[in-house]
């Protein structure tokens, strides 16, 4: 579901008849979906309905059994493992429910790492990471190891890492699922701010509050299919 205004914008994500099977289990059953630049799309549905599988397909973390996935002009089906890695490096940023930070690196190095993998020199990468830390209000925690950070702080570090290479698309898998309500609020505010400055978002969540606060469009999943799509009014 898109508006006329939306249709002028570039398509960032395009899924066409995507199927994914794990043995006898159909995780995705012919999903077709478009997300345009600047959109914030929330995907909701019961457990096991295929939400996370959809996210994995878009992130290039998994391959569909059938159908095509195009992200920012890249047909992911045509990329090999290295191609997918380069795609993830440049085109998408991911935020996970359980943060997935490297425990043996301080917060700033966790974030700088994403840029260093692209060949950015360490000093430059740290400089860029520090800018993000300042924007996200965690600059004073830059030298702290993940184990000593609060949940909200860890998730902000994860957001900083996801933004490090200026991705075309930010993917979030239950970004507030492991956080207390206050930290969850902070992360939601952060996602809204990012979307307002033009960052395209795809959020998978169980949390209606997160969907309604952060997303402009809601995609509801059931049994591996898109059951319903609707535009959302953001609840500030």
């Amino acid at each position: 579901m898109t508006t006329d205004h939306d249709s002028d914008r570039q398509v960032v994500v395009q899924l066409d008849g995507v199927h994914k099977e794990y043995g006898d289990l159909k995780a995705l059953d012919g999903v077709s979906l478009e997300i345009r630049a600047g959109e914030a799309v929330a995907v909701m549905g019961p457990s096991g309905c295929g939400k996370s599988t959809l996210l994995n397909m878009v992130a290039g973390l998994d391959r569909p059994s059938a159908g095509t996935v195009r992200v920012n002009g890249h047909d992911l089906g045509g990329l090999n493992e290295t191609g997918l890695a380069l795609f993830r490096r440049r085109q998408v940023g991911m935020i996970f429910q359980f943060f997935n930070l490297l425990d043996d690196l301080p917060a700033l190095d966790n974030v700088a790492l994403a840029a260093q993998l692209t060949g950015t020199p360490a000093k430059q990468a740290r400089h860029r990471a520090l800018e993000l830390f300042e924007e996200l209000g965690i600059a004073d925690r830059r030298n702290t190891y993940p184990a000593a950070l609060s949940g909200g702080e860890r998730q902000r570090v994860a957001v900083a890492r996801a933004l490090m290479n200026r991705p075309a698309l930010l993917l979030a898998d239950e970004p507030t699922g492991a956080l207390d309500s206050r930290s969850g609020e902070q992360v939601m505010d952060l996602l809204i701010d990012l979307n307002q400055i033009g960052q395209t978002l795809l959020i998978v969540t169980h949390d209606p509050k997160l969907a309604h606060r952060c997303a402009s469009r809601l995609v509801e999943f059931a049994d591996g299919r898109v059951a319903r799509e609707s535009a959302l009014e953001r609840q500030l």
């Binding site: 992130a59 973390l61 493992e81 290295t82 890695a85 380069l86 795609f87 993830r88 490096r89 440049r90 940023g93 991911m94 996970f96 997935n100 930070l101 490297l102 425990d103 790492l113 994403a114 993998l117 692209t118 890492r161 996801a162 290479n165």
Partner: peptide, 16 residues
């Protein structure tokens, strides 16, 4: 494994 998954998710190639 978790670290590896994360590193690959942020773009570490199989060769890396």
């Amino acid at each position: 494994r978790r670290d590896l998954g994360m590193l690959k998710s942020i773009g570490m190639t199989p060769r890396q």
